[in-house]
Design a protein around this nucleic acid. Sequence first.
DNA 1: TATTGTGAAGACTTTCACAGCT
DNA 2: AGCTGTGAAAGTCTTCACAATA
Lengths: 213, 213
Amino acid sequence: MPTVSSEELAAAAGVNSAKLRKDFSYLGSYGTRGVGYDVEYLVYQISRELGLTQDWPVVIVGIGNLGAALANYGGFASRGFRVAALIDADPAMAGKPVAGMPVQHTDELEKIIEDNGVSIGVIATPAGAAQQVCERLVAAGVTSILNFAPTVLSVPDGVDVRKVDLSIELQILAFHEQRKAGEEAAADGVVPPVAAKPHRKGPDGDVPAVMPA
Amino acid sequence: MPTVSSEELAAAAGVNSAKLRKDFSYLGSYGTRGVGYDVEYLVYQISRELGLTQDWPVVIVGIGNLGAALANYGGFASRGFRVAALIDADPAMAGKPVAGMPVQHTDELEKIIEDNGVSIGVIATPAGAAQQVCERLVAAGVTSILNFAPTVLSVPDGVDVRKVDLSIELQILAFHEQRKAGEEAAADGVVPPVAAKPHRKGPDGDVPAVMPA
DNA sequence: TATTGTGAAGACTTTCACAGCT
DNA sequence: AGCTGTGAAAGTCTTCACAATA
């Protein structure tokens, strides 16, 4: 399939084709009228805009179950990420191979960051250690942090943090699950367990705006 | 602190106080004019609306590094989730304790779901096993699935799936990182490595609409 | 002819600003 | 006096619809 139309892509992605064309137009005019988009060229342009064509060395700090899972995760390499080092505070872990790579001790953190020009760090430590690790990463030159520890990190301006809270995804599922249960009960003529009290509808079809869809 | 004003909450959350009041208003009128919101009552009402006051039994299928990390994750219990069972296809895993709980074999999947009234399943298997596990979960009565496997699941109508892609978060950081680098170079009077070709600005201050902020 | 790229319209969200209540 | 709750205004995003064009 050498070319693809906005209509086909939109159907596959479940969005409106005009929106897709407008979004693409912000990246430039990469389509051909009457034909569509050249698949290979489009993939390259989007990859470049997203930074997929660059090599991003990352370090993972905290090699417990989660850190090991991340180290073994195959999806990183294909998106331009290279795990430059695995770091753990436990001296007993040092030298142990995880995902074909020896774990290094926290003492080496600054040297590893500098030697590899790492600008992205992943924190998978227990909550108690996260802020301290974060500060050392930032001091050594890291400017983007992916935080899996269940704690809010404070960082200086210019440093990006993204927090991944595994329970929030479950929360969102439970929210919809609850809503399904409420609707069934309502359809059965039973008082729904939630939102029994009438209240004004929100902008998004009665789903409170606090909750992402 | 028995009460809190929308102004205080908005400042803490980094949002506009009118938006916060309007959002709260969709849940009901839980504030007092001239005073603010009663903290305890507000927490209860939001918890109830989000489903935090209910008990949600969940099963985790696939007890590798990631499954084990999820089983050990402390944040679930406090949000109303209870890990009802850990399930793995490897007979050698069966009976092994993980997070203080014996791993059960996939053969027991249907019985576990039914006996515990589980409606939420977590898939942490390799990509190849995910769709099959998903189908068995759905057939046994699960209607919400949290998928960590790097594959897109197809499910019947009425079943919710959320996919967690650990590399997408890194992707977002790398995207901003690239932009930081571009801006520095531009400030130095150097040609930025990306978006060198001029193009129209997108709706969100030149950040392409494809990328979540 | 088929499909892009995009102004203009429409839909939705956020903010303003103030009446209404404690 | 102080703060909520909310209509109305402003702002942003999405979709329509069609001129441009390969």
